[in-house]
Protein backbone atom coordinates (compact mmCIF):
# COMPACT_ATOMS: atom_id res chain seq x y z
CA UNK A 1 0.00 0.00 0.00
CA UNK A 2 2.74 2.33 0.98
CA UNK A 3 4.49 1.35 -2.23
CA UNK A 4 1.42 2.44 -4.26
CA UNK A 5 1.31 5.74 -2.31
CA UNK A 6 4.96 6.34 -3.02
CA UNK A 7 4.37 5.74 -6.73
CA UNK A 8 1.33 8.09 -6.74
CA UNK A 9 3.38 10.67 -4.81
CA UNK A 10 6.29 10.56 -7.22
CA UNK A 11 3.91 10.72 -10.23
CA UNK A 12 2.25 13.77 -8.68
CA UNK A 13 5.65 15.45 -8.30
CA UNK A 14 6.50 14.69 -11.96
CA UNK A 15 3.10 15.94 -13.19
CA UNK A 16 3.38 19.13 -11.16
CA UNK A 17 6.92 19.59 -12.28
CA UNK A 18 6.00 19.25 -15.96
CA UNK A 19 3.05 21.62 -15.46
CA UNK A 20 5.26 24.22 -13.79
CA UNK A 21 7.95 24.03 -16.47
CA UNK A 22 5.27 24.35 -19.19
CA UNK A 23 3.78 27.42 -17.44
CA UNK A 24 7.25 29.04 -17.09
CA UNK A 25 8.12 28.41 -20.76
CA UNK A 26 4.69 29.63 -21.85
CA UNK A 27 5.09 32.81 -19.82
CA UNK A 28 8.53 33.39 -21.24
CA UNK A 29 7.19 33.00 -24.80
CA UNK A 30 4.30 35.35 -24.08
CA UNK A 31 6.65 37.95 -22.56
CA UNK A 32 9.03 37.63 -25.51
CA UNK A 33 6.18 38.13 -27.96
CA UNK A 34 4.98 41.17 -26.03
CA UNK A 35 8.48 42.60 -26.00
CA UNK A 36 8.85 42.00 -29.74
CA UNK A 37 5.49 43.45 -30.53
CA UNK A 38 6.39 46.55 -28.47
CA UNK A 39 9.60 46.93 -30.44
CA UNK A 40 7.67 46.73 -33.69
CA UNK A 41 5.26 49.33 -32.42
CA UNK A 42 8.19 51.64 -31.58
CA UNK A 43 9.68 51.16 -35.05
CA UNK A 44 6.40 51.95 -36.77
CA UNK A 45 5.60 54.93 -34.62
CA UNK A 46 6.09 58.36 -36.20
CA UNK A 47 9.52 59.85 -35.40
CA UNK A 48 9.70 61.94 -32.32
CA UNK A 49 10.18 65.63 -32.90
CA UNK A 50 13.64 66.79 -31.94
CA UNK A 51 12.27 69.10 -29.30
CA UNK A 52 8.94 69.42 -27.66
CA UNK A 53 9.43 73.03 -26.55
CA UNK A 54 6.77 75.51 -27.53
CA UNK A 55 8.08 77.68 -30.39
CA UNK A 56 7.09 80.84 -28.55
CA UNK A 57 8.95 79.93 -25.32
CA UNK A 58 12.00 82.07 -24.70
CA UNK A 59 15.12 81.05 -22.79
CA UNK A 60 15.19 82.67 -19.35
CA UNK A 61 18.35 84.69 -20.02
CA UNK A 62 20.28 85.99 -23.06
CA UNK A 63 22.81 83.55 -24.56
CA UNK A 64 26.26 84.15 -26.11
CA UNK A 65 26.47 82.89 -29.69
CA UNK A 66 29.32 83.04 -32.23
CA UNK A 67 28.88 84.11 -35.81
CA UNK A 68 31.86 83.50 -38.13
CA UNK A 69 33.13 86.51 -40.08
CA UNK A 70 36.38 87.67 -41.65
CA UNK A 71 38.49 90.38 -40.06
CA UNK A 72 39.28 93.13 -42.60
CA UNK A 73 42.98 92.24 -42.79
CA UNK A 74 42.58 88.59 -41.79
CA UNK A 75 42.81 85.43 -43.85
CA UNK A 76 40.64 83.07 -41.78
CA UNK A 77 37.11 83.21 -40.42
CA UNK A 78 36.98 84.25 -36.79
CA UNK A 79 34.14 84.00 -34.25
CA UNK A 80 32.33 87.21 -33.35
CA UNK A 81 30.36 86.90 -30.10
CA UNK A 82 26.80 88.19 -29.97
CA UNK A 83 24.44 88.19 -26.99
CA UNK A 84 21.01 87.12 -28.19
CA UNK A 85 17.67 86.56 -26.46
CA UNK A 86 16.83 83.18 -27.99
CA UNK A 87 13.74 81.05 -28.30
CA UNK A 88 13.93 77.70 -26.49
CA UNK A 89 13.10 75.64 -29.59
CA UNK A 90 16.23 74.74 -31.69
CA UNK A 91 14.68 75.52 -35.10
CA UNK A 92 13.62 78.94 -33.89
CA UNK A 93 17.05 79.48 -32.29
CA UNK A 94 18.71 78.61 -35.58
CA UNK A 95 16.54 81.10 -37.47
CA UNK A 96 17.52 83.82 -35.01
CA UNK A 97 21.26 83.02 -35.15
CA UNK A 98 21.43 82.76 -38.96
CA UNK A 99 19.40 85.94 -39.37
CA UNK A 100 21.96 87.61 -37.10
CA UNK A 101 24.77 86.19 -39.28
CA UNK A 102 23.38 87.57 -42.54
CA UNK A 103 22.58 90.97 -41.02
CA UNK A 104 25.61 91.67 -38.80
CA UNK A 105 28.86 93.16 -40.05
CA UNK A 106 30.75 94.92 -37.23
CA UNK A 107 33.36 97.58 -38.05
CA UNK A 108 36.68 96.05 -39.19
CA UNK A 109 34.95 92.85 -40.29
CA UNK A 110 33.79 91.52 -43.64
CA UNK A 111 30.75 89.34 -43.95
CA UNK A 112 31.22 86.40 -46.36
CA UNK A 113 27.45 86.24 -46.88
CA UNK A 114 26.52 88.49 -49.85
CA UNK A 115 24.56 91.63 -49.04
CA UNK A 116 20.80 91.28 -49.40
CA UNK A 117 20.75 87.58 -48.48
CA UNK A 118 17.62 86.66 -46.50
CA UNK A 119 17.01 83.48 -44.53
CA UNK A 120 13.67 82.19 -45.82
CA UNK A 121 13.15 79.10 -43.67
CA UNK A 122 14.88 76.49 -41.56
CA UNK A 123 14.02 72.79 -41.12
CA UNK A 124 15.70 70.21 -38.91
CA UNK A 125 14.95 66.55 -39.72
CA UNK A 126 15.13 63.48 -37.47
CA UNK A 127 18.66 62.70 -38.67
CA UNK A 128 19.79 66.05 -37.26
CA UNK A 129 20.27 67.54 -40.72
CA UNK A 130 19.42 71.23 -40.91
CA UNK A 131 18.01 72.46 -44.23
CA UNK A 132 18.70 76.18 -44.49
CA UNK A 133 16.71 77.98 -47.15
CA UNK A 134 18.30 81.28 -48.21
CA UNK A 135 17.21 83.80 -50.82
CA UNK A 136 18.86 83.78 -54.29
CA UNK A 137 21.19 86.62 -53.19
CA UNK A 138 23.44 84.04 -51.49
CA UNK A 139 24.28 82.57 -54.93
CA UNK A 140 23.85 85.64 -57.15
CA UNK A 141 25.98 87.88 -54.91
CA UNK A 142 29.05 85.59 -55.00
CA UNK A 143 32.21 87.42 -56.08
CA UNK A 144 33.63 84.25 -57.74
CA UNK A 145 36.70 82.32 -56.68
CA UNK A 146 36.90 79.10 -54.70
CA UNK A 147 38.13 80.86 -51.55
CA UNK A 148 35.18 83.28 -51.39
CA UNK A 149 32.63 80.52 -52.06
CA UNK A 150 34.24 78.22 -49.47
CA UNK A 151 34.15 81.05 -46.94
CA UNK A 152 30.44 81.75 -47.53
CA UNK A 153 29.56 78.10 -46.98
CA UNK A 154 31.88 77.49 -44.04
CA UNK A 155 30.78 80.71 -42.31
CA UNK A 156 27.22 79.30 -42.27
CA UNK A 157 28.36 75.82 -41.25
CA UNK A 158 30.64 77.01 -38.45
CA UNK A 159 27.97 79.30 -37.06
CA UNK A 160 25.39 76.47 -37.07
CA UNK A 161 27.62 73.75 -35.57
CA UNK A 162 28.97 76.16 -32.96
CA UNK A 163 25.48 77.17 -31.82
CA UNK A 164 23.72 73.79 -31.83
CA UNK A 165 26.33 71.01 -31.74
CA UNK A 166 23.94 68.45 -30.24
CA UNK A 167 20.94 69.19 -32.43
CA UNK A 168 22.61 69.50 -35.85
CA UNK A 169 25.13 67.16 -37.43
CA UNK A 170 24.79 68.10 -41.12
CA UNK A 171 23.72 71.16 -43.06
CA UNK A 172 22.23 71.45 -46.52
CA UNK A 173 21.95 74.89 -48.08
CA UNK A 174 18.89 75.52 -50.27
CA UNK A 175 18.26 78.51 -52.52
CA UNK A 176 14.65 79.72 -52.64
CA UNK A 177 13.45 76.33 -51.43
CA UNK A 178 15.41 74.25 -53.96
CA UNK A 179 18.49 72.04 -53.73
CA UNK A 180 21.36 73.55 -55.73
CA UNK A 181 24.62 72.02 -56.94
CA UNK A 182 26.79 75.03 -56.14
CA UNK A 183 26.77 78.73 -55.22
CA UNK A 184 29.47 79.95 -57.62
CA UNK A 185 30.65 76.93 -59.62
CA UNK A 186 33.38 75.49 -57.42
CA UNK A 187 32.08 73.94 -54.20
CA UNK A 188 29.57 71.07 -54.44
CA UNK A 189 26.70 71.74 -52.00
CA UNK A 190 24.18 69.32 -53.55
CA UNK A 191 24.17 67.14 -50.42
CA UNK A 192 24.15 67.73 -46.66
CA UNK A 193 27.63 68.68 -45.47
CA UNK A 194 29.66 68.54 -42.28
CA UNK A 195 33.25 69.24 -41.31
Amino acid sequence: MSKIRKIIHSRLIVTWGITLVTIVIGLAIVLLLIANSKRTVIQDAPPELPNQANPTDMLPSPKDVNIYLLESDGLELTPVRLELRLYAEPTEQLKQILSALVQTTPTNYRNPIPRGTVLNEVYIDTQKTAYLDFSHHLADGQIGGTTAEYMSVTSILRTVFDALPENIKHVQILIDGKEVETLAGHLNISQPLRF
Binding site: L70, S72, R110, P112, I143, G145, T147, A148
Partner: peptide, 8 residues
Protein backbone atom coordinates in the same frame (compact mmCIF):
# COMPACT_ATOMS: atom_id res chain seq x y z
CA UNK B 1 42.14 76.52 -64.60
CA UNK B 2 40.54 79.24 -62.49
CA UNK B 3 41.38 82.55 -60.84
CA UNK B 4 40.59 83.06 -57.20
CA UNK B 5 38.79 85.83 -55.30
CA UNK B 6 38.41 86.55 -51.63
CA UNK B 7 36.68 89.03 -49.35
CA UNK B 8 40.15 89.86 -48.04
Amino acid sequence: LHCNASFS
